[in-house]
């Protein structure tokens, strides 16, 4: 039963691979935008009054402690029952972004908590308004601390994009499966995709380590 590695199948798969890669990167880009912005909203809400903070804690804990896969099914199959029908790309990006916003929230929270209390007091002593204090003083300092950790979550999201193939998006893994079903060559496309993830993720994580060292101080 031992079948040989077939390089022709690899070359044959490549056009499908590139199409898949583009969709993977699209889902990742939208997911990142959502995760970064929504996570910030959660983190600021956590500093608000209890009637805002507690529901936010409840919702984010629930999202973080349940599988992204089921959340994707929920967005793709359940949401259209009451709301708009979402394409696989849209549902996938929302699911990815929503799920990871609960992680970026913690990153922002740590970054915001890491700004010394003296900064709030100084802003207060200068009569700055609360929104202006956030914008000019707290967030610029918090962001700096969060860049490496946020970068790590982008890599984590990249590795979760294949889940979107389960609701029909033909991203990299989806392309590999489709190619396998058509040609009965599973081994080559799946290996190519697996290597592709490592090839993208490894330099990215090296880059983040460099950034981390650079941004450690002002």
């Amino acid at each position: 039963m031992n079948s040989k590695w077939n390089w022709d199948a690899v070359w044959d798969f490549m056009p499908f691979f590139w199409d898949g890669l583009i969709l993977t990167l699209q889902a990742l880009a939208w997911g990142t935008v959502l995760a970064f912005s929504l996570g910030l909203v959660w983190a600021i809400a956590l500093r608000g009054p209890r009637w805002i903070a507690w529901p936010v804690i409840g919702v984010t804990e629930f999202i973080r402690n349940t599988p992204l896969l089921i959340q994707l099914f929920f967005l793709f199959y359940v949401v259209p029952e009451w709301g708009p029908t979402l394409s696989a790309l849209v549902a996938g990006s929302i699911g990815l972004g929503l799920h990871y916003s609960t992680y970026t929230m913690e990153v922002y929270r740590a970054g915001i908590d890491g700004v010394p209390v003296g900064q709030w007091e100084a802003a207060r002593a200068l009569s700055m308004s609360t929104p202006h204090t956030w914008k000019a003083v707290i967030l610029p300092q918090a962001f700096r601390r969060t860049v490496p950790a946020l970068g790590n979550y982008v890599i984590a999201m990249l590795k979760e994009t294949p889940l979107i193939s389960t609701i029909g998006l033909v991203e990299m893994l989806g392309a590999a499966r489709a190619y396998g079903v058509q040609t009965f060559n599973f081994m080559e496309p799946i290996t190519v995709v697996g290597v592709a993830f490592i090839v993208i993720a490894y330099p990215a994580s090296l880059l983040i380590r460099v950034l981390e060292r650079r941004l450690a101080t002002y």
């Binding site: 992680y103 913690e106 990153v107 740590a110 970054g111 890491g114 700096r144 601390r145 969060t146 860049v147 490496p148 950790a149 790590n152 979550y153 890599i155 984590a156 590795k159 979760e160 994580s205 983040i208 380590r209 981390e212 941004l215 450690a216 101080t217």
Partner: peptide, 15 residues
């Protein structure tokens, strides 16, 4: 922090 599939040898929050 860092243990999630987020992976990363780096610490969440940094500095």
């Amino acid at each position: 922090g860092d243990v999630a599939p987020a992976g990363g040898s780096t610490n969440g929050g940094g500095a």
